[in-house]
Amino acid sequence: MLGSESLKKIDKEVAKYPPDQKQSAVMAALRIAQEEKGWLSPETMGFVADYLDMEPIAVFEVASFYNMYNLEPVGKYKITLCTNLPCALSGANDVASYLKEKLGIGFNETTADGKITLKEGECFGSCGYAPVFLLNNRKMCGSLSFAEVDRILAELE
């Protein structure tokens, strides 16, 4: 269900915790699964549950609690823009409008070509670099101006 690379990574996470606490690795396992599959389908969550000896609903509780998990398919690129107060004071709402207009989508929508999903995020703890967005949960892009947004979008294949 998950590739051997992913399983290897999950095993490494499991090893961080006491032997009877495999469940501690569930957040990492879901993240790794999502990185491989793009999103967490019920089958994927079921697999993770089996792999860590958990009840599937306990896995779903976790997957649905932390908002970086994708419980639905997303575009190849997921842009999560922080609009919280410090970012808003530095122009996040303008960046939001700019992104929406440029991509032709609203928050929680995906471009027709399936390339980009736009999400609204809460504080990333990076307010000094405001406004910021997070690309595919991994890359933080800060001090966003319209030109910077253009540059980043142009680099996305």
Binding site: S24, A25, M27, R31, L52, M54, F65, Y66, Y69, G121
Partner: peptide, 21 residues
């Protein structure tokens, strides 16, 4: 241990729960 998007985990006992999976 990596969080995954929940402000509340900054609360120390929520954080412990989170480490427990």
């Amino acid at each position: 241990h990596m969080g995954y998007g929940a402000y509340i985990c900054g609360e120390e006992t929520a954080l412990l729960e989170s480490i427990e999976g």
